[in-house]
């Protein structure tokens, strides 16, 4: 089963929930945790594990072969991202804008735009007893997170059997990287805070998950601050609230020291138990 932990708003507690849930579950069973927020991965700050494997990750981008080009302009017409531009008698390629769709390369009548690999980041595979941790990190200056997120999930699919629970710590927002990180998930947990900001962005995230036809539930973090808008919204819309993690200074202190919290704050463990119970019902209900 694949569980994606996402949110509309940033800084609601995706990583806190991901690392604590994963570490807690890994006390009893094999778990794969992957930080798919490749633009700024931070789950690793909370995971003590040894490196098993590290590899460079590449995306494919076109390279212009001047001597083969007839300057027909098809390449720049088919590129939706303006990554290929014709300037007089020259074709300019912007690898950072390229989404690696191959359209320019495949449709070039004279094969003047062959695809070549370009390094975009690193993937690390770490292990601590039953917890496997996969972190990908985009190189500074790279704009496209999606190819690296996809390759990270492919790596997990190749190296772990389907029966192992995967937890994907997803990027914030609702744009392409979030779609890539959640589209293969069997269930999505949307973490929010009970504030007007949290509710506003939660609504956008809910719309996104409905569009993707994903089953999802909400975890309220920092419960006790703000107002009851999020809870009333979830009730109105029949969205299950899986847990309410309390607002507690102790949690913030542990977090700021890079420590896990579920063993230190009993209420957190209780709330994680509720989430785990919900996930188990889902699994029995036929979600693979």
């Amino acid at each position: 089963m694949k569980i994606a932990i996402a949110s509309g708003k940033g800084g609601t507690g995706k990583t806190t929930l991901s690392v604590n849930l994963s570490a807690y579950l890994a006390e009893d069973e094999e778990i794969v945790l992957s930080d798919l927020d490749v633009e700024e991965p931070n789950s690793g700050l909370f995971i003590n594990a040894r490196m098993v494997h590290e590899e460079e990750k590449y995306k494919m981008v076109p390279e212009w072969k001047e001597d083969q080009c007839t300057l027909c302009g098809i390449c720049q017409e088919v590129c939706n991202f303006h990554a290929v531009i014709q300037l007089g008698e020259m074709i300019m390629v912007f690898p950072e804008l390229c989404h690696g769709c191959y359209a320019c390369s495949e449709l070039c009548p004279t094969d003047a735009l062959p695809m070549i690999p370009k390094k975009m980041g690193m993937l690390k595979h770490l292990q601590n007893d039953k917890l496997s941790f996969i972190e990908s990190r985009l190189d500074v200056g790279e704009e496209q997170a999606v190819p690296l997120i996809k390759q990270s999930q492919d790596y997990i699919d190749e190296h772990f059997t389907d029966d192992i629970l995967r937890i994907y710590d997803s990027p914030p927002g609702t744009s392409c990287p979030v779609i890539e990180a959640t589209k293969d998930a069997d269930f999505v947990i949307l973490v929010t805070e009970p504030t007007p900001f949290g509710l506003h962005d939660l609504k956008i995230a809910v719309e996104t998950m409905k569009e993707l036809k994903k089953p999802f539930g909400v975890v309220v973090n920092r419960h006790g601050i703000g107002n009851d808008g999020v809870l009333r919204y979830c009730e109105d819309k029949d969205i299950p609230v899986l847990a309410k993690i309390p607002n507690d200074r102790k949690i913030a202190e542990l977090y700021s020291e890079g420590k896990l919290i579920y063993n230190e704050v009993p209420e957190v463990k209780q709330e994680l138990d509720k989430i785990i119970a919900y996930l188990r019902t889902l699994k029995q209900g036929g979600v693979q």
Binding site: F81, H82, I85, Q86, L87, G88, M92
Partner: peptide
Amino acid sequence: DAHGAGPKTAQVLFGLDPKVLITGNGPGGN
């Protein structure tokens, strides 16, 4: 344009054939 507005607009400007561009913040890298 969700992406690549900068190079696209630069290409348009190339077609208009000026020698000098006067602007505000300045173009991005691409």
